[in-house]
Write a protein that binds this DNA or RNA. Sequence first.
DNA 1: ATAACTGATACTATATTGGTATCATTAAGC
DNA 2: GCTTAATGATACCAATATAGTATCAGTTAT
Lengths: 136, 136
Amino acid sequence: MKLITKNTDYAIRALMTLASDRDRFFSAKEIAGIQDIPYHYLRSILQILTKNALIKSREGVGGGVKLIASPSRIHVSDLIIMFQGDADPGECLVKGRICSNHQTCVLRHEIKRIERMIQNQFGKITIQTLLNKEKN
Amino acid sequence: MKLITKNTDYAIRALMTLASDRDRFFSAKEIAGIQDIPYHYLRSILQILTKNALIKSREGVGGGVKLIASPSRIHVSDLIIMFQGDADPGECLVKGRICSNHQTCVLRHEIKRIERMIQNQFGKITIQTLLNKEKN
DNA sequence: ATAACTGATACTATATTGGTATCATTAAGC
DNA sequence: GCTTAATGATACCAATATAGTATCAGTTAT
Ligand code: FES
Ligand code: FES
């Protein structure tokens, strides 16, 4: 049961690095080195974080990315949605098309309930709380 | 966030069909028809359920499979483990190998906690409870 | 001018999941 | 006994999702 994919994981770790010094720019190369993340892959992830305004970038020499959102306002649940998409829309299909009892299906109901519970749990975890726990 | 894969889903539904008449044998063909599951795929699923002693099979004309476990003792969590494997052992890797802070990693800790919570939730759902809810 | 960066985008590789096919074996019923 | 309807075992293929790579254009500090 893969709750978090690599890109989400990498995003979290990159953000934690950025949160360690909120005022300066880190280059993708630097973050990749610190966190041991494949450079090109990380770059694509940072671009998504930039588009979502969690970080801002500066091009050219001495450039890189810098945190702009508050670490306590970046919830892991947001990152999951950002990188893994909101809980699959179709879900519980029969041979590609939606099955007849789609609306009433009890199993589906239970799954949806548990999914909400999971999102709720991940919503309580922020970059800040992760950093706090790390220090102990 | 795919909590349940198709094979688990199909297994659940096949078991619900079998639970509707515990005394007789249903052929794979019959179940496939009722639940609209691809025949050959269902067959491979039924073989796994047989090996795990949730159902028993009879070969030859008039054969098929029949429920032997009690519907109230078949937990969805068991089926998830059976078809999707116990929560990935490696998890949270860095470039294939296990990262240095694997033991202490706080994110990993949180994920493990949530995974346990999910298994606990699915542990409360049985074939019987699904059947009960269906009747309402 | 050069070097160190990001933006945009396309591409490839790998893994997982979902599904198909085949042949051997078993058992019922005529 | 022969036929037919079933499962056992197993190998294979297809589709999808995830992970990772590569390239080139544009930007900026020195
Ligand atoms: S069987 Fe289709 S929604 Fe559950
Ligand atoms: S970063 Fe490797 S276990 Fe979390």
